[in-house]
Amino acid sequence: MLVRVDPGSDIPLFAQVAASVRADAAAGRLRPGDRLPSARDVAGALGVNLHTVLRAYQELRDEGLVDMRRGRGAVVTDAAAPLAQLHDDVVALTLRARDLGLSPDMLASLVKEIARDR
């Protein structure tokens, strides 16, 4: 697993770490039962504060994507499987939105609104 962040982005680092883990789960690079690297290792590799990575892991735990146990670390849950099943649909949607000239932010906003209304 390779966690990617852009320090120059307006998106908070913890949110970028969480999004990177979600993307790996959606792409099938992370599967249920896989262990995430320790927060300390990720923080050291990225050059960010340990609490930044812990906040990302806690967000993923709150979403149900990872289970965090003392001494066991963060482990990917069965919630990763549906993300992987949607991957191809999401790729197709983003390509279609790009073809129509929609920005990623506009697409994300549209998806959130539609999901909220259903």
Rank of each mutant, 00 (worst) to 15 (best):
D10H: 11
L95C: 09
F14C: 02
M106N: 07
R61S: 14
A84G: 03
A108T: 12
A25R: 02
A39E: 12
R96I: 04
A39Q: 10
S103Y: 04
S20M: 00
A23N: 10
L102D: 11
R29V: 08
P12A: 12
L13A: 12
L50E: 12
S103E: 13
G101C: 06
H87F: 08
G28L: 00
P37M: 11
V111D: 03
V42L: 03
T94K: 09
P7F: 14
D88A: 13
L36A: 07
F14Y: 12
A97V: 04
V42N: 01
R69G: 04
A39F: 06
L54C: 04
R69Y: 01
T94V: 09
R55N: 15
R96M: 09
S38L: 10
R70D: 12
L107W: 04
D89W: 08
L102F: 09
V5Y: 02
M1V: 10
P7R: 14
F14V: 02
A39T: 09
A27T: 04
K112M: 11
M1R: 01
E113D: 10
D99G: 08
L13Y: 06
R29F: 12
M68I: 15
P104A: 01
G8C: 00
L86Q: 14
R98W: 13
A18I: 01
A15N: 04
L102M: 15
D105V: 13
L2N: 08
R40Q: 06
G28S: 02
V76C: 03
Q16S: 03
L110R: 07
R29H: 13
S38R: 13
V75D: 15
G73D: 07
L93H: 01
L46R: 02
L86H: 14
L46E: 07
A84W: 09
R98G: 15
L54K: 07
L100M: 14
D88R: 13
L60F: 03
L93T: 07
